[in-house]
């Protein structure tokens, strides 16, 4: 642990750039999934604990595409469309029925769903850790001290495009406006003739689609495995908690910070601590939020 720390501080400070770059490039994908969570949380008040499973599902589209001998990035449109449909089915069969119930119901239902998806993926694809080969070149900087696979830049750009598209959609399309109206006051929206049922279904499906896209990117720049979803869920939860719902710049900043922090912990303390670091960050964020609220004589709820 101290060896790695001294690499960063004295021996090869340039390696910091590697970690920062990796962290930011992967953080962008986290931001995508977290934005989806903020969306369903803000609009429908559903704390979606199968967020990570949607991401992993998306990842397997890329993996299948690679198996079929095509470039995995081509899976992106398929993942978006199919996950959108999947989200709609999940909404109609399950989420719709828990919307009016208390918070823990939606949390537990989506946790149950997470188990189903994990296990189904496990049955279908096996428990092996998969990394999808994108066959892009690797960029070498600073005499080879810093190496970044080009796919990470591609994924970063795609992230930006997708996020931009979603934001434009939310701002300018009729459905986007309806979603924002429902988020502010569902009852008023209903009175004004907005079909909130439809809005909810669309929001949930949009979230699934966003996650699917994030999964395709994750599978190319990192790894996927049927049971890795839960970490993605918690990560999204941390990011949204830190940033607050409906705060897109905050979500992006928190996600990039999260990516960087994980890279540092993974490098300094060892890869086995990388997952645990997500939870430690969660705890720190929760404690920080409590201290913040306690100044206002309030609790975190």
């Amino acid at each position: 642990m101290w060896d790695n720390l001294s690499i960063l501080t004295t021996h090869a400070p340039v390696f910091n750039i590697q970690l920062l770059l990796d962290g930011i490039l992967i953080g962008a994908v986290f931001a995508l999934a977290a934005y989806g969570l903020a969306l369903v949380w803000g609009v429908m008040n559903v704390k979606n604990l199968c967020q990570g499973e949607f991401v992993i599902m998306g990842g397997y589209f890329a993996w299948l595409m690679g198996k079929a001998g095509l470039h995995p990035i081509l899976a992106l449109p398929f993942a978006i469309v199919i996950m959108f449909g999947f989200g709609w089915v999940v909404y109609l069969t399950i989420i719709k029925r828990v919307l009016t119930k208390d918070m823990f119901t939606s949390l537990l239902t989506t946790f149950g769903l997470a188990i189903v998806i994990q296990q189904a993926l496990n049955l279908a694809f096996g428990p092996e850790v998969q990394a999808v080969q994108s066959d892009f070149h690797t960029l070498s900087l600073f005499d080879g001290f810093v190496t970044v696979a080009n796919i990470k830049f591609v994924s970063f750009v795609l992230c930006g495009l997708l996020a931009g598209a979603v934001v434009m959609f939310m701002k300018h399309s009729r459905m986007g406006q309806a979603i924002r109206a429902t988020a502010q006051d569902a009852r008023a929206a209903r009175v004004m003739g907005i079909d909130t049922e439809n809005v909810y279904a669309f929001t949930y499906s949009l979230n699934a689609a966003i996650c699917g896209a994030a999964g395709v990117l994750i599978s190319m720049i990192w790894v996927i495995q049927p049971f890795y979803g839960i970490t993605h869920s918690i990560r999204s939860f941390v990011i949204v908690t830190a940033a607050g719902i409906g705060n897109l710049p905050g979500v992006i900043m928190a996600a990039l910070g999260m990516g960087v922090a994980e890279q540092y912990v993974g490098f300094v303390m060892g890869a086995e601590f990388q997952q645990a670091s997500v939870v430690v960050i969660l705890l720190l964020v929760l404690i920080w939020r409590q201290m913040q609220m306690s100044k206002l004589r309030q609790v975190v709820q």
């Binding site: 823990f104 839960i230 939860f237 908690t241 997952q275 645990a276 705890l283 929760l286 975190v300 709820q301």
Partner: peptide, 19 residues
């Protein structure tokens, strides 16, 4: 944890067990 309510408590405790 007892300054946390609802979903925060549930996810925080889940985090503890996983970590």
């Amino acid at each position: 944890f007892f300054g946390l309510r609802g979903p925060y408590f549930a996810i925080g405790t889940l985090g503890i067990a996983l970590a």
